[in-house]
Write a protein that binds this DNA or RNA. Structure first.
Lengths: 200, 200, 200, 200
DNA sequence: TATGAATGAGTCTTCATTCAT
DNA sequence: AATGAATGAAGACTCATTCAT
């Protein structure tokens, strides 16, 4: 594939991503993507044969980016609390940004493609997140910054309430305080000497 | 509307509910409901003019049922902890039952119909839930069964992680322990003398 | 058929007539007539089996009424000019009243039902009108009130321009002067000593 | 749009025109036009999205053609009577040709689309015709070929009786003499020295 | 007579997908 | 690579018409 082809594919994915964020997965048609990207029917089909394929390529791109971002965040030898604050701040922002969230699209997509697919990439991603968090929490405990908590419970509470809020923020106006409260509560469980009760 | 008509409407709603749980809102067509309910096209349209209308009537029915159920649950003068256990047990079961969950349908439905509607019935329902929980927690605090916690934070944590898990349970196999862990953690925050750290 | 049945049929015809005037023949459905008349589907079908049947009964009623009206108008021994004025005044009013005109419905109806029907009742009605006018004009000539004109030409000019204006008055705003001008021109041809050029 | 597309659009319009002439506007469906033109459903919708759009494009084409034809007809410096004869001959033929007349379709179409449109294109066309005739009659008067008639009245008489006959010729057998008589009467009013009373 | 539930046919409309250019 | 014409399938929606009550 030459450079021009690559550019076209990038353009297609960018347009498609906006559409998926706006309408979810099932409500986006190849026709929509044609119109948004300015390509003709045939032109689009030269690159991708279905919305499914485009979405999967988007997923893959995002995982790569996310992995890279996470790697940067977990900078060893920084205080665990500082790393935690950084990550929770990212979470907080995402929880409030309903518009650009692909969560509905994700849910629709995996709700269709889990059964037929051999691998469940959503579960993979969940397990990856759990693992990353386990490492971070253990790191915090080792440095005696974090309490010896029920790690699994805290992580599930965090990850699922994060997902819950992201979804709801697409559906109703979510008060700005809600993410702060939730993440603050999590942090309170986790951080040992945060006696002043600072919220994130 | 006569008795026969009422029966047909009930039949339609029952069939539609299964379909919505299985496929979400957008993926269910009037044709699907015709076939599931054994009605002809015209027959179905005599009763409902869109999947939207059917879904809304389902919503209304469910709210009525839920309101009644909750009223029963909040039996005054029972120990707050006992009431809490009952409710959390219901939550736990629902979190694991991905198949009969309407959550995807809800999300799709409200993602479309929030803007056009004046009122946001999803938010209404959220506020209702928050209120019910506030009452219960205050009741527990008054009886000195519960700690004096950050009520709002605990409630959001509970409600959104519950929603998050319900959604994920439609998309991937959710370990049976996850709901228990989450709800146990919540209970641990809440209940004063549960010093043995029992999970729910 | 008893009295109640007669009343129902009259109600049906009245409602249907308004609908036909408003929308033409083809655009009116049995369902429309049900709703307009407040009858149920089955109730309407007990009386009429199609819009066609209702329209034909309307036609028959109107012909009866018209015939009776014309008979009254042609009062012998009155001045021909006075009779002419009376009739032309009726024509003028009808030409301006686009809203209550059934002309579109007529045209649609006869455009469908001329071929299949053995008799062409539209032609019958045309011939009847021509005859009535011939009698009137001859009466005027005999009384030396009217000129010895080309009767057939004048009658056709009158009848067809009348129909043309009636139709157009349903489709665009027709200037009030147009019917006056047309009928005045006709009268000018016809009436001998109307030297002052009065318009109707 | 490429050449093939243009050809298809022309084919569609030709087929649709026959159908409109035969059945009126409302009775023609997109399916009819598919079948008549040999296109598939989707193929037709690629070009036009409704019968309304097709009809409007037909109207526009016809206006263009008519304007061009009229320009040719009004050849300056020819005798007014000769121009008149030419035009009336065209009118006469059209009055008798019920089969290819679009008048029913016109009436149905404008009866629906007058209110919603800002401009009333039927009225536009009427005013255009009136103007053209005014010019011709004035030209004839200036050349002393025509009498000093009540121009407006004559024109209305001509235009509306023409429309009336065109419509009736779709609904019943119209005697060949009727157009001749009508137009002859008009001409008689108009032309000064046509003392021999020739009909057109 | 009157009701309204039910049927089934017909049309509209939108898309995914293919293909000649 | 790109274009856009064409196909055909799928689903929405509306009615005329029948029938049990």
């Amino acid at each position: 594939m030459n450079k021009r082809g690559q550019e076209t594919r990038t353009r297609i994915k960018t347009c498609a991503c906006s559409l998926f964020a706006e309408k979810g997965f099932n409500q986006v048609t190849m026709k929509d993507i044609c119109e948004a990207s300015g390509l003709s029917r045939g032109g689009l089909y030269n690159h991708y044969e279905s919305t499914r394929q485009i979405f999967q390529e988007l997923l893959k791109d995002m995982q790569n980016n996310q992995a890279r971002a996470f790697d940067q965040k977990i900078r060893q030898n920084q205080p665990a609390t500082s790393i935690l604050d950084d990550i929770l701040e990212v979470y907080r922002e995402e929880m409030l940004d309903g518009r650009s969230s692909l969560s509905l699209a994700f849910y629709e997509f995996f709700s269709i493609h889990q059964a037929c697919g051999k691998e469940n990439s959503l579960q993979e991603q969940y397990l990856l997140s759990v693992n990353t968090w386990k490492n971070l929490i253990q790191y915090g405990i080792d440095r005696q910054e974090f309490r010896e908590v029920d790690t699994d419970a805290i992580i599930d509470l965090l990850l699922f309430s994060y997902q819950g809020v992201r979804m709801y923020s697409k559906l109703m106006p979510v008060d700005k305080e809600i993410p702060s409260r939730i993440l603050g509560e999590i942090k309170k469980q986790l951080v040992r000497s945060d006696s002043d009760g600072n919220h994130i």
